Simulated scan of single mutants.
Amino acid sequence: MRGARLGSFLVGLAVLLAACGNSGSGTPAPSTGAPIIFGAAVSLTGSQSKEGGLTKQGYDLWLDWINQRGGILVNNAKHPVQIIYEDDQSNANLSATLVEKLITVEKAQFILGPYGSSATASDAIVVEKDGIPMVESNGAAQSIFSHGYKYTFGVLSPANKYLTGVLDMAATLNPKPTTIAMLAANDNFSLEVAKAVADYAPSKGMQIVFNKSYPAAAPDVSGLISQAKAANPDIVMNSGHLAEAIAINKAAKQLGLNAKIFAYSVGPSTPDFISSLGPDANYVYDGSQWTPQVKYKPSFYLSVADYVKAYMLDHLIRARSAMLWPPSML
C-alpha cells in the first residue's frame, strides 16, 4: 500500500516491522508470547520455481534472524515466528486459493507475498476480502496498487523504475547509444516495464526501433531475436523473468546480435543466470533491490557475510555488486 493511510493497521505494521532491541534499563525483561503465524504461497515448482526458491530463501533468512533474537517484540513480550509455506506451482490462480487456505485453515495472521505480479494481484484480492495484511516484495506492477487496497503493502521498486536507470547510465556514455530493441513478456509487470522504457527513452535522446511482446515463458525466442537483430539496436532490453532472460541472452549470442548494452528486468542478479550463461553473463545489467555498496538503515538489515554464510552464494553477491541500483527502493 504505497502512500495510503495506515488507519487501523498501525498495530499490525508495528508487529511486522518491530526490531527486537533491548527492553530498556527501566523496563522488565520481555516475556515470551504466543507464536505469530505468517503464511506464504510461493513458486517452489513450475516455470518460476527459481525465483520462488530465492523468495523463500529470503523469508527463511529473516525467520532465522528474528527467532534467534527471541521473536518479534510486542508490548514487552517476544513472540516467536512461524512461516507456513504452500507451493503455488507458478500458477496465479492457485496462489490465491492457497492464500485463502493459509488464512482460513492454517490461521495465518499475516501473509508474505508470492513471486510475481500476477500471483500478487490475485493474492491481494484475497487478503483484502479477509482483512489480513500482506507484505510483498516481488509484485512490482503498479496495477496492483491502483485498486485502493488497504491490506497490501509493497516494499520494492515499482515496475516503471526497473530499467529506466539503465537508460540514465547509457546516456552518460560517449558515444551515447541511441537505439533500443525492447522485448517484453505479455504479463502486466513486463508490459509496464516496457512501456516505461518507451516513455522515458526520448527524454534521454533515445528511440525505440523494435518493440515486441511474446508469450510468457516462451520456449523459443530465436525468431524474436532475429527480428531485433535486423533493427541493429545499440541497446537490447528484455522485460520478463529468469527463464526468458537466459533464453534471450543465449539466442543473441548464437545469432550474432551484438548490441552495446544488454539489460533485463529480471535475471542477471540471480545465481542461475550466471551458472547457465557462464562468461556470457558478464556485463549484462538489471535493476537490483539490494547491493552491498549501500549502507542501509536501520541496522537490522543483514550483511553480505550473513547472506554468503546462509546460502554459500558468493557468486550471487559478486553479481549483485555489479548491478545498477534503482532510483527508489520503495
Rank of each mutant, 00 (worst) to 15 (best):
L6T: 09
G21K: 10
S25P: 07
S25Y: 03
G26I: 06
P30V: 11
A34R: 13
A34W: 07
F38I: 08
V42C: 04
S49E: 12
S49K: 15
S49F: 06
T55K: 02
W62R: 07
Q68R: 13
G70S: 04
G71F: 02
I72C: 05
L73A: 09
V74F: 11
A77W: 03
Q82S: 14
I84V: 06
I84R: 08
A92N: 05
A92D: 12
N93R: 07
S95H: 01
S95P: 10
T97F: 11
T97V: 13
L98K: 05
K101R: 14
Q109N: 09
L112G: 01
G113Q: 02
A124S: 08
A124T: 08
V127I: 11
E128V: 01
G131C: 11
P133R: 00
G139H: 04
A140S: 09
I144H: 01
I144R: 03
H147E: 09
K150P: 06
Y151G: 02
G154Q: 06
S157F: 06
L163V: 00
L163P: 05
V166E: 02
L167G: 06
L173N: 04
N174G: 09
P175A: 07
P175S: 12
K176E: 01
T178N: 04
N186R: 15
N188C: 10
F189Q: 00
E192N: 00
V193Q: 02
V193C: 01
K195A: 13
K195C: 04
A196E: 00
P202N: 15
P202A: 12
I208P: 00
V209D: 14
S213R: 04
P215D: 13
A217C: 14
G223D: 10
S239A: 15
S239P: 07
A247F: 01
K250F: 04
K253C: 02
I261L: 13
G267I: 05
T270F: 12
P271D: 01
D272S: 13
F273H: 03
S276L: 08
D280M: 12
Y283N: 15
G287E: 06
Q289K: 09
V294D: 10
S299E: 09
Y301E: 09
L302V: 14
R318W: 12
M323T: 10
P326F: 09
P326D: 09
M329H: 13
